[in-house]
Amino acid sequence: MHIFVMLLVNGLAEGALIFLMAAGLSIILGLVGVVNFAHGTLFIWGGYMSIWVFRLTASFPLALLAALATGVIMGIVFERLFVKPVYGKVTSQILITLGLMIIFTDMVRLLWGPNPIPMVRPPWLDGTWVFGQVIIARYRVFLIAVGLFVAVGINYLINKTRIGMVMRAGIQSPEMVQALGINIKLYFAAVFAGGAGLAALGGALYAPLVGSVWSGMGIDNQILAFIVVILGGMGSFYGSAVGSILIGLTSAFTAWFFPPLTAYSTLLIMVVILSLKPEGLFGLAVRK
């Protein structure tokens, strides 16, 4: 039983991290119809920037903020310069964002070197809580809290605010929104930047969890996020939330019970779900 509780916490924490990436990807996909293949690169940049700021200021909140800001700024630059010219051209979008992935991943190696850089957890998040036989790392609880906060926040933003209303209308009919005098392109850019910021935040939160950052961590997590986006139903926000938890729990449980299968379990889950439900759990076909 205590193992079950511990794995549950581990899985949810991992799910929360994946969610930070998948939520951004999924909202961008739903609203703008773009998949950002450089999402993992933003994740890496978030991780490296947070370590850099953490070493300068010794403040973890400031480090997270720096990562978030880096992601948002890079998101704006990516969107304005590279994604905007190819809206509506799916193939070119994939190719361009892949090009950005190569450039900015290698830029990290150029600036910080090819070797992993260690990162410690801030003292107030380090350590464990012990309840009888159950040992729970504080940092994982913190991750779950961040994930929940972001999920509730995005849900509120989408369903209860005017911005969210425009976004929902934009998914259904961008032309109509445009005709009502709203600059939908500005919302596209904002959503892209927001998603990029979340990815970078994810990278900053991932570094203390595994204890280091390295330039290959982006692609691994990007693939998990892609799997979540596909099995949740492409472009569905709820799908990405449910999918993240599912993938997080799956990898935590397989890592405990069948370690050799860990890397494949997520792909297997996707394969099973796509076989049963080709359009994904919350099947929302992308219309754009």
Partner: peptide
């Protein structure tokens, strides 16, 4: 369709 190209690339 367009979603198919994306899904294919990701999978």
């Amino acid at each position: 369709g367009a979603g198919g190209v994306l899904a294919c690339a990701m999978i």
